[in-house]
Nucleic acid binder design. Structure first.
Lengths: 341, 341
DNA sequence: ACCTGGCACTCGGTAGGATCGAGTGCCAAT
DNA sequence: ATTGGCACTCGATCCTACCGAGTGCCAGGT
């Protein structure tokens, strides 16, 4: 693909550009270790790299900047060679975070997104594991006093799903009473407890019309709301996006995307499905408003093979080794932590 | 305080500055309707207004810009005179939103924050009503399979509280079984159902040690986590903050504040307590990182006298009449909607 | 055949200077 | 007390010159 020297030069350019955000010239590259050549030679090589699409010049007689393809080569060559390490302070931070972590899953995931953001100084995203595989530990129908009731399901992974529904009304126009609600509740519990969310099945008729009606709407509520497709999204450190770009318009655009949870979830899931861990630029992740951004993902494997997702979003010129290391270690420890419950 | 002409001039300056974001000069003011004077007179008046702290000049021989004090006078004079109206399109949007609104409270509040943000083109905040006043409709302890269990409480306002806890262990080191969990669950339900969250009281001893231990830790979990003080925070349209300022550093700072839920909640609650509906600049809202920002709040009164909060956050040079109108109508309709359940 | 030092050239960025014009402050006249 | 007039200020804009990092290319060396 690229001979050793070209690769070394390209790596040097990427590294320096990531650090300085300035176009890098042949002299700097020639001086950098790992490259054994005069600036003139480097110039020649760089012009070839440019012709091959790894570098661009912002304008004639300026240094070179990596293209998305350039970054891609960089991270690929990185991937093989063993990623970077977190510095000791960060390692300690991660460790103390996960030993102190406790309480609600949601809360912990939210905190995790902030941790990851702090580690990388970029925006982090954490997506809770979907609960398709989880089994139902308890279901309950609770009347709320008015015409409305709530179906509450507790899942084996500790999450709680709830749906509101309208109580069926009797012929005289009044909603059904506590007795009917209780009957439906126990019957629902009897038939659904232990099943997985994915396969709820049917609850056989009781013979009592009102109870059946309530059961039906409960089931509808439970299965209906499910289409959210995967768990909640936690975005941490969105404000750090403002460090990444100096055009306020760009910041706006990126933040706009981050507000659309659906888009974010789809993006990360899609990348995982494609087996990518890092997507560089719009060509790879497919979101034109995120041109100039890279996305980094990792699955979080807990028990039961259910997987959550974590990722970070930053400018294409981000510190990939550091970010990859952070994502890797956090995904690993978070997975372990979830497994423990 | 200010004679009529000065007031009119000040108003004219504020209005034009809000619209154009440019320092406004005496000629523009003289030409604006509501002011009957030559530009020379306006100049004299404006220099008085500047001496009194209502206006500033960014630099000599430039137009004037309102100070926070100037904005304050403006919104006060507005307040008396009857705020602005939403335009018909926006009215329609609000109406259709609240007729279509359905489902989970949380989901609706989140959507509402986005609605409010869309209406005002600023960042909106919605805080769910605290559930101190709500009564408990159902409590349940559910074992999760490992050493952990979940206490789930359904409240009369439709919200669900859950806390994880460690199951007590028997002498032989194994966690207590389903029987104990069930016993604790029913006992808990018996004693707490119907009470308000604020006054949970004590659950009398059962005589069985394991059950008592589980009851105790359940109660600790229920009362302990309560300190979150008020409901969840929903921030809508944070990305619009990037429209308000063109210094990326400012945007960063403001977004940073928005990420600290506690600060946001405290801010809005504090303003409500002080009886303010609009706080202009750091002097009034007290957050130096939000210098150059105004905060607009309104309570959302639902049933039971429990109140949520909505607010918007924007640059001091925001369209106050429009924003006030939007906040007012949304708070009103949201309150009504919540009351209905 | 490949590197490398040397050299002319390019072009963005910065600094200095001239000009423009919106806006002010002040004064004298009404 | 108000207003027209006038000199003055000062940011914004434009132009020019210049600097320097960087390039492309060539000719000489290994």
């Amino acid at each position: 693909m690229l001979d050793d020297r070209k690769a070394a030069i390209l790596r040097a350019v990427v590294e320096e550009y990531i650090e300085t955000a300035q176009p890098v010239g042949s002299q700097h590259v020639a001086r950098s270790r790992g490259v054994q050549a005069s600036s003139a030679t480097v110039r020649n090589e760089m012009s070839v790299l440019e012709r091959d699409g790894y570098l661009v010049q912002p304008h004639t007689s300026a240094g070179r900047i990596p293209t998305d393809k350039g970054y891609r080569f960089f991270v690929d060559s990185l991937h093989g060679w063993g990623a970077g390490q977190l510095n000791p302070g960060q390692r300690a931070e991660v460790k103390s975070f996960f030993t102190k972590a406790h309480g609600e899953l949601e809360h912990m995931l939210s905190e995790t997104s902030q941790l990851l953001s702090r580690l990388t100084d970029h925006t982090a995203v954490v997506i809770a594991p979907p609960h398709e595989a989880a089994s139902i530990r308890s279901v309950q129908v609770v009347g709320l006093g008015g015409r409305t009731a709530l179906v509450v399901a507790v899942l084996s992974n500790g999450s709680v799903e709830k749906r509101t529904l309208e109580l069926p009304v009797r012929d005289d126009g009044t909603p059904v009473g506590d007795g009917v609600v209780a009957a439906a509740s126990t019957r629902l519990a009897g038939h659904l407890t232990g099943r997985t969310v994915a396969q709820l099945g049917e609850v056989p008729s009781t013979g009592e019309a009102m109870v059946d009606a309530l059961l039906a709407s409960s089931m509808r509520a439970l299965t209906g709301g499910q289409d959210e497709e995967g768990g909640a999204v936690f975005v941490g450190g969105a404000s750090r996006m403002a460090n990444a770009f100096d055009a306020v318009a760009t910041v706006r655009q990126v933040l706009g995307i981050l507000e659309e949870q659906f888009v974010v979830v789809t993006l990360l899931r899609d990348l995982l499905d494609r087996g990518l861990t890092v997507a560089i630029g719009a060509d790879e992740h497919g979101l034109t408003p995120l041109a100039g951004c890279s996305v980094l993902v990792a699955p979080v494997r807990g028990a039961d093979g259910q997987t959550g997702t974590i990722g970070i979003l930053g400018p294409t010129r981000m510190n990939y080794p550091q970010a990859l290391a952070a994502v890797a270690v956090v995904s690993q420890r978070l997975g372990r932590r979830i497994e423990e419950g």
